[in-house]
Design a binder for these strands. Structure first.
Lengths: 207, 207
DNA sequence: CTTTTAAGCGTATGGCGTACACCTACGATC
DNA sequence: GATCGTAGGTGTACGCCATACGCTTAAAAG
């Protein structure tokens, strides 16, 4: 009976993401998104209850850019590496939204699908029961931590340079570590850490 | 010559942390902190340049609650576990500040001291050079990721219950994993994941 | 007691999220 | 094709927020 909606929630989320990609997370406001959609500010509230919900939609949208289908061949750890890299690529392409994932991780269907596939790979590798629960959480913890570290100060970035310049008498180990870190790319760093995590998960049954 | 300051930056940071602990991160505002200090809003600006700097001070303050001294005895992985638990305890006691650590991780002396000790433990364990750089970052990535996961939905919490109730035909592996996860406490989860990471780091020299 | 310097405060500006009341376009009904 | 109900779209307004600016004032130094 009534007037039909002229936008989908996806379009709204896409507009918000466009604002974030262009102006940073600080540039995200209901006014800015409405303008992006050529709508009045308040019209936006016909599509989302509040800013909180809009943020959730943005996180969802990025998750939909992650291919959740299981990688076909190879050993289990290579498969999980593939899944991890997909996640890292998607969120790395919109690094500014990372703070949103912290408050909106729960409410995303995409994250469930990704987790389902990874849990399946673990099960196929013989990691099951409580051990699988710990393993899945450990993998996720490493990935989100690594993504955040990467976009807060990559190994080769200024932060590392600053650390390498620290007083060597006070922080000898950090300075030495940073000296080597400067020659490690973010990709190598991410894969190296992940490989260690997977090696540890696969090795013993201790859990 | 002039009138002396009546407050230290530490006191200001403590007031801000008190506000956060009481009213959550959303309750943090220059006005609220000023009121906590029985100061006018603008007087606060004599102690911090802006809100950004205040947030940094809060993160610093929590880091000062972390004992950075190297644990005395035991194998290297037990030492790192001790260091990790200290960090987790400190931030777990003020879980609401986690989003701040994301944007203020760099500028903290406490984090450097903590890292220095951990880097030293790694070096003593024979993990040196580029391998140490990757290892240090991996440990940090796991810890911050795990802390965030823990306070966004612990294994035994509502989130896991919701996942366990998922349509089993669509998310069989997640449902099964969550079923086991319900019986794992946050502590066991954290230690289990960390143990896997350390096992992987110590095992091979691949990096 | 005067001088000097920064501490502390009041006011004002421009942005934000969003409640509310209003207009309006449109599909369904007759 | 006229009418009506509904929900889409809008403008205004309120109470927050961070913070720039300029004033008053406490107190140390002389």
């Amino acid at each position: 009976m009534p007037r039909p909606r002229s936008l989908t929630q996806d379009q709204v989320a896409a507009a918000a993401l466009a604002v974030i990609d262009r102006d940073g997370l600080a540039g995200l406001s209901m006014r800015a998104v409405a303008k992006e959609l050529k709508l009045s500010t308040m019209a936006l509230y016909r599509y989302v209850r509040d800013r909180e919900e809009l943020e959730g939609l943005v996180v969802d949208l990025v998750y939909t850019e992650v291919d959740p289908s299981p990688p076909s061949g190879g050993p289990w750890d290579a498969k999980i590496e593939t899944m991890a890299l997909r996640l890292r690529d998607a969120f790395g392409a919109h690094a500014a939204i990372m703070p949103l994932t912290l408050t909106h991780r729960h409410d995303s269907r995409g994250s469930l699908c990704w987790g389902e596939t990874v849990a399946g790979i673990l099960a196929d590798a013989g990691i099951t029961g409580p051990r699988a629960a710990v393993a899945l959480r450990a993998v996720i913890a490493y990935i989100i931590g690594a993504i955040q570290l990467e976009h807060l100060g990559p190994l080769e970035g200024e932060g590392t340079v600053a650390i390498a310049a620290l007083p060597a008498d006070e922080f000898p180990n950090m300075a030495e570590t940073a000296r080597h870190a400067r020659h490690i790319g973010p990709d190598e760093e991410f894969r190296g850490g992940l490989a260690a995590v997977l090696r540890g998960l696969g090795g013993s049954g201790a859990g």
